[in-house]
Design a protein around this nucleic acid. Sequence first.
DNA 1: GCAAATTTGTTCGTATGTATT
DNA 2: CAATACATACGAACAAATTTG
Lengths: 259, 259
Amino acid sequence: MADPIYRRIAEQLREQIESGELVPGAQLPTELELRERFNASRNTIRDAVKSLIALGLVETRPGQGTFVTERIEPFVTTLSADPKTGLGGGEGVTYQDEGRAQQRVATATDPRVEIQLAAGVVPVLLKIPEGAQVVSRHQQRLIDNTPWSLQTSFYPMKFVTAGGATRLLEASSIENGTVKYIEETVHLKQLGYRDWITVRSPDTNETAFFRLPGDGRVGVFEILRTAFDQDLNPMRLTITVFPTDRNQFIVNVGELPGG
Amino acid sequence: MADPIYRRIAEQLREQIESGELVPGAQLPTELELRERFNASRNTIRDAVKSLIALGLVETRPGQGTFVTERIEPFVTTLSADPKTGLGGGEGVTYQDEGRAQQRVATATDPRVEIQLAAGVVPVLLKIPEGAQVVSRHQQRLIDNTPWSLQTSFYPMKFVTAGGATRLLEASSIENGTVKYIEETVHLKQLGYRDWITVRSPDTNETAFFRLPGDGRVGVFEILRTAFDQDLNPMRLTITVFPTDRNQFIVNVGELPGG
DNA sequence: GCAAATTTGTTCGTATGTATT
DNA sequence: CAATACATACGAACAAATTTG
C-alpha cells in the first residue's frame, strides 16, 4: 500500500496511453465504467484522471467524455538572424516566410497601436527614462487559424516626433517590415539584437486568446528582443508570447550546413 | 452565480498574494480557518488551493500548512557563442565561468560514460546509421547545490576507435573541455552549432533529480545542440534538460553593446 | 523520546448543476 | 425532452506528516 489508489489507477491508465493501446484522440472509459473496473469511488477515479490532465496526457470534455490528447504539430521559429539581412525569426516579413516554408498559412491581425508611458522592463531595456512616451504596436498572430503568438513592440516616441516615422502610429502593418521603415526614416539601422527567453504561466488574457486550459498547466515562452542600432543603442523592444505546447525554437551559431 | 465557488475563493486569495498582502514564504490560513472565512466546505477550500498550486502561486506542506511560493533566483545561460572562440553557453569550461559571473558556485558530477547504440534522434542528428555505436557522456550539474541541469553528450564511437580520442571513455571531466580535446586528437574543429529548444513535461527521473512537484506542473527545457566541424558534418549531439522554473536563456545576434 | 495537537492527504458517499448528444 | 457524461459542492472518516508540550 505504498501509493494511494488514485495514483495506481493513473499509473495503469498512463501505461495504456504510452503503450499505444489508447491512441491520441481515443476516448477513455467513462468515470462510471472506470469506477467498476477499478472498484473505486467516482471521486477517486476523478482524482486519477485529474493527475493525467496535469501531465497533459488526457483532456475531459463535459457531456462527452475523457480523451487522449492529440499533440499539436509544433511551429518552429528561428531566433538567430540571417547573417546577410540582420533580420531575425518572427520579424516582419520573415514571419510569413517561415510559415510558408513549413507549408502553413501564417496570418496576423492589424496592429493595435497605443502611445504609452514606459514602465517595467520597457524603459530599462530601451534605456529611456521611466514614464517617457513610447509607441506600442500589438499584434495577434495565427497559423492555420490557430492562435500562435502575441507580440508587442515598443519604440521611443522620439522616432515619430523627431525622426518622422509617423507611420509607426498607423494601425496597419508596414510592408517590408518596420525594421526597414525605421532605417529609411529615422536612419537607424538594426545591426543586432539580444533575445531573453523565459517560461512562465499564462495570464488570463493569454489563456483566453490561446485557448489554453484554465489551470495554468501549459506555460508560455516570453521572449524579449532588444534590437540595437549602428551606435549600439537600443532602438526597439519586442515582447512575444508563445504557448509552449505548440512552439519550438532554433538558434544557429557559426557555420552550418544547408544555410 | 457565474463562477464556481472554489474559483471565486481562489481569486480572492490570488489577489491577496499578488497585491503583496501575502508575501512569498508567508503561510496562508489553514484549511479549517479558510472554511470558516469563506463559509464553504473543506473540500471546496482544497479545490481553490489546488488551483493556486497549479498556477504556481502557493505550495502545501503536509503537517505544516500552505505557503506562498518563493521564486527561485533564475540562472541565465547564453546560447549564442562568443564569436572568437566558437564556444557556446553551457559548454565545458564556459559553464563554470558563467556561474562565477553571476556570483554563484557551479559544480558538476563526474561524467557517467556509456557506449550505446544510436537510437531515436541521435543517429538522425549525428547523421550516422541507426544502431551505430556512440559514446554517451552524462553529467548532473548544480548551482549553489541546487540541481540545475542534466546533460548528455553523444559522440560517434569512431572518434575513439579511429581518431584516438580515448579519453572520451574516461569517467572524468576533460579539462579545457571536450571541444578542444577533440580538435587536438580527431582534428575536427567545431565551427558552429544549432540549438533546438523545446519545452515538455519532466519524466520521473528528472522530477526526482530536480525535486520538482510530482504533478508535472513545472516543465523542462530540452535543448538539443548539434555541433558541426569544419566540413559542416555533425560531430556531437548534446541534450541538456533544464527546469523552466529556474532557468532563462539569452541569444545574442549581430553587433551588441557591452560585448 | 513520546504523546497530543495540528495540518494536509486520501477515500468514500451523496446530491445537484451543466454541457452535449 | 431525455439520456449521458463530466463539474461542483457538501459531509464524514481516517491516514500521514509535522510540530509542540
